[in-house]
Design a protein around this nucleic acid. Structure first.
Lengths: 199, 199
DNA sequence: CATGAATTATGACCAAGTCTTAGTAGCAGA
DNA sequence: TCTGCTACTAAGACTTGGTCATAATTCATG
């Protein structure tokens, strides 16, 4: 049973090699493993691994989707309820890409981002800038947990809105924050005493 | 000069079409524009646009790099100086992917993330959790600007570290924050009074 | 020795290109 | 009118990185 062992070992390694270099071609793989191209093709067939161009295409699609949804959406998380100028709820499904590999604990800035973008979304203005934020992390969030953020505008004086956000997992509070958000009309002239970053 | 106008218009549109669907083939493009494949190839040559497989490959590479560096790096930004337990400096080059398309203003959570992860990096412990954060955005940051964050541990009592972070563009302050970071030894038993999220 | 699994080889074919050479259509100026 | 230019189209040879089918070879093992 020498060849069988050899083979299954190769299959295993093959999967790994392709995993961390999806661009590699069969020719290169054949060279790496010291077997013929045909063997590599049969192996891929057996493992159900598509050809390199297909792998590349999938990667590109997946990654562009991810970048678009994670980075360029106007709001981090899904807005499931909004009363402009009053309150709102946003849901964020966390995943391992948001977390530290070692601990699977979600990075704080994602939680912050959800809360902050919700706070800004509530303010009824062309442009809204966060001036200050005070936040508290109550317990770590594990990758896979579903974050539900509830926000409420608790006060308003002129352009300054104070928004309180509480983020829960189930019934447990994991994060709270208070954001001072400024509404801005003019494209380049915002608060003189309190500038802020648009979020 | 009718054909010339037609052509330059097509080149322009071609660039756009390929831009928002990089996977499209010459054959499909030929069909879209109602010209021959050869014309499309000549156009691409003129515009210096590579073939679809090449475009796909680049996308995949770029996107995977981006996801890795932006999302899974242990620190957001580049640590250019660290004195563990004392102070540190991190640099973050902002780009349009970090900003709102409409305004080109960098999303606040990126600035927060840089500061927060720097604060956490300074704490000399196996695991460090942010308990609270108070931050102030002093002026909006435009995509392309280079953020330099300086952090300093200003006090420490037991496991609680207070870290002050100031982020500048050139000599101008754009953000300040104060982070309470907790050092944790045991894998699952952290602060009883003050939990926190590992960042 | 025969059998079967694993491997290698071979050849036909495909998609999506490259690069080269050549032909055509339409219009503009000497 | 002829000539030349630009734009477009066509045709052929070659490349990469494969698929698919059909052998042929190797080799351990019953």
């Amino acid at each position: 049973m020498k060849p069988k062992q050899k083979k299954s070992k190769r299959l295993e390694r093959l999967r790994e090699v392709i995993e961390d270099d999806p661009f590699i071609t069969d020719r290169e793989l054949a060279c790496v493993f010291g077997v013929s191209i045909q063997t590599i093709r049969l192996d891929r067939l057996e493992l159900g691994i598509p050809e390199s161009r297909e792998r590349t295409r999938r990667l590109a699609e997946e990654a562009t989707n991810k970048v678009r949804s994670v980075e360029t959406g106007e709001v981090i998380g899904d807005l499931i309820h909004v009363k402009l100028g009053q309150e709102g709820i946003s849901v964020l499904e966390t995943d391992k890409d948001m977390a530290f590999q070692r601990t699977s604990i979600v990075r704080g800035h994602h939680i912050f981002a959800q809360a902050n973008s919700l706070a800004v979304a509530l303010v009824d203005a062309e442009i809204a800038l966060t001036g200050t934020a005070t936040v508290k992390y109550l317990r770590p969030v594990k990758a896979g947990e579903r974050l539900v953020a509830k926000a409420e505008i608790v006060s308003r004086s002129g352009r300054r809105h104070v928004v309180k956000v509480t983020t829960k997992i189930g019934h447990e509070d994991v994060f709270t924050g208070e954001f001072a958000v400024f509404a801005v009309d003019e494209p380049d002239g915002y608060g003189e005493t309190q500038g802020g970053d648009l979020n």
